[in-house]
Simulated assay, not measured.
Amino acid sequence: MAVRELSVGYVAKRCGVKVSTLHFYEQKGLIQSWRNAGNQRRYKADVLRRVSVIKAAQKLGISLQDIKLTFATLPLSRTPTKQDWAKLSKSWQQQLENRIQAMIKLKDSLDGCIGCGCLSMKTCPIYNPEDELAVEGPGPVILER
């Protein structure tokens, strides 16, 4: 069975990214290509799924480094299976759950003091009299509890 060769332009259009984005992903080791006899980049069809996963993961706040580490567990010599992708998604579930909980905490605290130690809000003395939170460290310590 012949490997379907996809051009960089086709992959970019199909995935909704710029050609330079594909070059960047390749430089970062997230995807791979080869050169044909005319020295043009070519990709296997599974790159479409990989780029889609990269885009989805980035929208969720997953760093390119985390994406790369997770992709390293996938096979390079064959197209990843449904089971491969299920395994990949599990590796991000706890990270996403932690981010969701942090965002809920932030949302619930936006209208009041978040413990930053600024003492600029009228309600801060209720949460932070005499800047007691300073001993817990810098930044919004109440959110980090």
Rank of each mutant, 00 (worst) to 15 (best):
1 M>Y: 08
1 M>P: 06
3 V>Y: 03
5 E>P: 01
6 L>K: 04
7 S>H: 00
7 S>C: 00
8 V>Y: 00
8 V>P: 02
9 G>R: 04
9 G>A: 01
10 Y>R: 08
11 V>G: 09
12 A>L: 06
14 R>H: 07
16 G>R: 10
16 G>N: 07
19 V>R: 07
19 V>F: 02
20 S>N: 12
21 T>I: 03
21 T>L: 05
23 H>K: 11
26 E>W: 00
27 Q>D: 15
28 K>L: 14
29 G>D: 14
33 S>K: 01
34 W>S: 14
35 R>F: 11
37 A>D: 10
37 A>N: 05
37 A>Y: 02
38 G>E: 09
39 N>M: 06
39 N>Y: 03
41 R>L: 09
43 Y>P: 09
44 K>S: 07
45 A>G: 00
46 D>N: 06
46 D>V: 07
46 D>C: 12
47 V>E: 02
49 R>Y: 04
49 R>E: 09
50 R>F: 02
51 V>K: 00
52 S>Y: 02
52 S>N: 09
54 I>L: 14
56 A>Y: 10
59 K>R: 14
60 L>H: 08
60 L>Y: 09
60 L>Q: 08
61 G>I: 01
61 G>R: 01
63 S>R: 03
66 D>H: 13
66 D>N: 10
67 I>C: 05
67 I>L: 07
67 I>A: 10
69 L>S: 12
70 T>I: 11
73 T>P: 00
73 T>R: 08
74 L>K: 08
76 L>E: 13
77 S>V: 06
77 S>R: 07
77 S>I: 08
77 S>L: 12
81 T>A: 05
81 T>F: 02
82 K>C: 00
84 D>I: 15
84 D>L: 14
84 D>M: 10
84 D>K: 08
85 W>C: 01
85 W>R: 00
89 S>Q: 10
91 S>V: 14
92 W>Q: 05
95 Q>N: 07
95 Q>K: 14
95 Q>Y: 11
96 L>V: 04
101 Q>A: 13
103 M>G: 09
104 I>E: 09
107 K>D: 08
109 S>R: 11
109 S>N: 10
110 L>V: 12
111 D>W: 04
111 D>T: 06
113 C>R: 07
113 C>E: 06
114 I>P: 00
115 G>W: 03
120 S>E: 15
121 M>H: 13
124 C>T: 15
125 P>H: 11
125 P>W: 11
128 N>I: 10
129 P>S: 10
130 E>Q: 08
131 D>S: 11
139 G>I: 04
139 G>P: 05
142 I>K: 14
142 I>M: 13
142 I>A: 11
142 I>T: 12
